[in-house]
Design a binder for these strands. Structure first.
Lengths: 341, 341
DNA sequence: GTCTATAATGTAACCGGTTACACGTAACCG
DNA sequence: CGGTTACGTGTAACCGGTTACATTATAGAC
């Protein structure tokens, strides 16, 4: 918006074309009849002058910005690339822009004003814990469109959310380890505490154990934080403590990377001695050694649907489906002990 | 900006606090003296009313948006995650927002109006070929701040650009294959034609060959497009044609993934029979089988410096350094034939 | 004790669009 | 042929901030 002093405005166009600003505006927005002769004249005048309408002025007048905000907890992870693409694609299709803000540390905006909001955008997408309850309530009060991603909203708020099926998949992949590979002592690596995905995955894991009459040894549940380094340390630590395990459900694929590295360092063969499975099916998963058995989360689709829902909300639609739960799928590779072609 | 009808404005605040709008504005922006008593009053009134200044109105009045635009050719690749983080981090530090637009197909905006520009933002970052020469000239005419990423600007424009050192690194890694591993027939996979990085990498490759008195067999230069699938096909095709090679410089790490897959399918052992090296050191590189010898490109830093330069430009600084060339570094792993610890 | 500089505040124009309303003209109808 | 309707256009208020300029009160200088 750094328009130089003498930038060309709608009035310049109007004057040069010999019409009123209202006519120019109508021509621009197809918001009223404009004679063919005038249309032609305006078209040429506008290219001659290289006129581009000023977004802020338009936003101010119309109360619409055609922009949506995205709040992330950590941009830059491999996880976000597909999410971003899904979001951006969908928004672009509908002529909306995307404003991004990353909160490096969790809950960064607590008590402060959000970097995106009603003053800024027509709606916001909030990933996981990037939006705290206070803000969520404030936004709801103003009836501001919000869609949550990988997080279910507080029960008292009618905020749509889009995420993937975690529990059943976690249960299934754990069962796979038990039934097919006869694992009995399966270590589980938890994600960050605020991360809801982790909670459901752990629930699925626990259910699978009890389904098969296995009792859970608390020593087998540890923090991996969905991070390579943390998972790496966790595995070494467990080993150091003398905890015995024959499989690891790493919580997500990032942690799987760290886990594989740790096991290699400990000279524990995967999958012969220890089975390893992850969650997400990030891009690197097939290329790990051994290729990682994991659960495929349709992250790009999550982005797509989240954007979709938000646009519906913005365009005045009601919230017809509160929770969009996208199906996940077990991807069998080598690290669990299977030998796929 | 979907403010509901009766949203709270600066005048509401002024009235409730019993002062004029000018005073409120001065208080908000610390742009003039405000008595302590009034300051206190305003603070409480503003929290009571939950007042947030409207961005568009402010932008309109000040001709500043504190937003920069980013044009990408393809969001969603692993390459962009660190780039984005570098950019977003730096911008956030200086209170700027980031507006993202991805052009799925190259040159998407040719002839059309850019999705970001002077009407929108205070400056833009253009990755590779996302900005064509016409737009570049138009922007330059308006003296609009632009910084290019992984692309050198047309010679007649004073547009700063930030990229990584390609040629010397490509030359060095190729020399490594020749000198250390005694490779003689090194296949090179080119990136997309518009991609300048690819050009420089190929130049370095050719220099290394001639440095060592090797002549280039044109059959050894093929298209990999920096994409797994394309590289995969290229390798199979070369093999089908009976082209003999003892090493592959894959152009980038994406293509290296495809290359490794193709060689495995052909039962050609890496690195025993064929050495493979990439470029970028993407996150998956250490986890490939075998771990990939490559060149580390400091992509997050590229984002950081690009944002930095742009902010300098926006804040009126002159272009002191036209080309920021970040150093790269060879990362020796296993795929070239070395055996690092 | 007057003069001047400074602090604190208010008034109103302005940024560049949109749009409600008014107006004139031509077409259409019975 | 008068009356209604639709079309094409213009005038001016408005969106919610910023800011130049004017104004008053207060303190310090001489």
């Amino acid at each position: 918006m750094t328009r130089s002093r003498n930038s060309v405005t709608i009035r310049d166009v109007a004057k040069k074309a010999g019409v009123s600003v209202a006519t120019v505006s109508r021509y621009l927005n197809h918001t009223g009849p404009v004679s063919h002769a005038v249309s032609e004249r305006l078209k040429t005048v506008m290219t001659e002058l290289n006129y581009v309408p000023h977004a802020a002025a338009r936003n101010l007048a119309t109360h619409k910005s055609f922009t949506v905000g995205l709040l992330l907890s950590d941009i830059g992870g491999d996880f976000f690339a597909p999410l971003l693409r899904g979001i951006e694609d969908t928004l672009a299709e509908h002529g909306y822009d995307l404003l991004i803000s990353s909160t490096r540390r969790p809950q960064r905006w607590r008590g402060k004003q959000l970097p995106v909001g009603p003053h800024n955008t027509d709606g916001i997408l909030g990933f996981a814990d990037s939006l705290d309850e206070t803000h969520l309530h404030q936004l709801a009060e103003r009836h501001f469109p919000v869609v949550l991603i990988h997080r279910t909203p507080p029960a008292d708020l009618l905020v749509p959310s889009v995420t993937v099926e975690n529990k059943a998949a976690a249960r299934a992949i754990t069962s796979h380890l038990i039934e097919v590979h006869h694992r009995r002592r399966i270590l589980f690596l938890q994600g960050p505490p605020e991360q809801e995905d982790s909670y459901w995955r752990e629930t699925g894991y626990r259910q699978a154990l009890s389904d098969h009459g296995l009792t859970l040894d608390p020593a087998l549940v540890r923090r991996g934080d969905f991070e390579q380094q943390v998972a790496y340390e966790a595995i070494l630590q467990a080993h150091r403590e003398g905890v015995v395990f024959d499989a690891v459900f790493t919580g997500d694929d990032e942690a799987a990377v760290g886990t594989l590295a740790a096991l290699q360092k400990l000279h524990l063969a995967v999958p012969e001695e220890i089975s390893v499975v992850g969650f997400d099916d990030q891009r690197m998963a097939p290329y790990l050694t051994p290729p990682l058995t994991t659960v495929r989360a349709p992250t790009e689709l999550v982005g797509h649907y989240a954007a979709q829902r938000l646009l519906e909300l913005i365009q005045g639609g009601a919230v017809e489906e509160l929770l969009t739960l996208l199906p996940t799928e077990i991807i069998i590779r080598r690290s669990c002990g299977c030998s796929p072609s």
